[in-house]
């Protein structure tokens, strides 16, 4: 957080600040997805749907109903949670079937964004979003937005890191490692899977609201199924199951892809190469690499103190 304040005061370049802002939104998305995929072991390929639901909820609330952005954020999270509740019907499916069901779910939601014109304005999109947080309180400068985002990211990070490192988190990991064994010690697998999906979905909704007001517009384009895959790549590169890994993976990959925007045609190709590379040579991602380095330096494991 202190680093964020320093960055905000020191960095004047609008380009770099907006680059950082984009990256931070992706960090939120990746953290939420990490809870579902990396921690609970449920390969969700529909995460972008909740990102989109959040963006539209926030945009519609603030433009059409003139609500302040804070309400927009809350509504974004609420609707994204509702959406994930719908998707969590699919937790009864296992393994690859869950992946396919969530992928299909994401595609259906995206089709709704494109075709439900009276509400979403279709491919025209919703333009002119304001950043009126509450009353007359606004965040118009990129630096201000950056600070706000950094605060939100920290909050989400602490929330999820603590959640992962607790009785609740152990139950999720137990489900990831071995569902049968988890049930055999009394863990209600279905309930925990659903909770994990709801929490992940809510954070994606939050990210949606953040992105909507960052770009001041919402179109269906960024919420397609390939975005879910890009998010998956971020957490795979960062290291499945690791919250710091997800944050770093999302941050670095977004920075890179935004920085090399001129080569956008190649970015997806590069993403694909990255994910295959990591799966073959470094399935534990950057976090795994980090662990190897750390273990060379010192020994022992402690509970992270957050």
């Amino acid at each position: 957080m202190i680093a964020a304040v320093l960055v905000a005061t020191l960095v004047q370049s609008r380009f770099i600040i907006s680059l950082l802002n984009y990256s931070l939104v992706y960090v939120i998305l990746a953290l939420g997805l990490q809870l579902i995929v990396g921690v609970t072991g449920q390969l969700s390929l529909g995460h972008a749907a909740f990102y989109g639901i959040g963006a539209y909820a926030s945009a519609i609330a603030t433009t059409r109903f003139g609500m302040p952005w804070v309400v927009g954020i809350l509504l974004a999270m609420a609707f994204a949670t509702l959406g994930s509740l719908l998707m969590s019907l699919t937790v009864r499916t296992r393994g690859i079937y869950f992946a396919v069901a969530t992928l299909a779910f994401g595609i259906i939601i995206h089709l709704v964004f494109v075709n439900w014109v009276p509400v979403t304005r279709g491919t025209m999109g919703i333009l002119g979003l304001e950043r009126r947080l509450w009353g007359q309180w606004r965040i118009d400068s990129p630096q201000g937005y950056f600070l706000f985002l950094a605060f939100v990211v920290c909050a989400v990070y602490v929330f999820l890191a603590r959640l992962t490192d607790s009785r609740f988190g152990r139950a999720l990991k137990a489900i990831r490692e071995n569902e049968l064994a988890a049930q055999s010690i009394g863990i209600d697998v279905t309930r925990y899977k659903i909770k994990s999906i709801l929490i992940g979905g809510a954070t994606a909704g939050l990210a949606g609201s953040m992105m909507a007001h960052l770009t001041r517009m919402v179109t269906p384009e960024p919420f397609g199924w390939w975005k879910s895959i890009v998010l998956l790549i971020m957490i795979v590169a960062g290291g499945l199951g690791s919250m710091p890994g997800a944050a770093v993976g999302a941050f670095v990959l977004t920075l890179l892809s935004e920085y090399f925007r001129g080569y956008a045609e190649y970015s997806m190709l590069a993403y694909g190469l990255i994910i295959v590379f990591f799966m073959i040579y470094l399935p534990e991602g950057l976090a795994g690499l980090w662990h190897i380095i750390i273990q060379k330096v010192r020994w022992g494991g402690r509970r992270a103190v957050w």
Partner: peptide, 24 residues
């Protein structure tokens, strides 16, 4: 002998490689 999910994720990455390679 990696977990099943690793192969699946790799194949997801392959989608991007093939589709975008084809686009290029």
């Amino acid at each position: 002998n990696a977990p099943e999910i690793n192969g699946v994720i790799s194949s997801v990455g392959m989608i991007l490689i093939l589709a975008n390679g084809a686009m290029l």
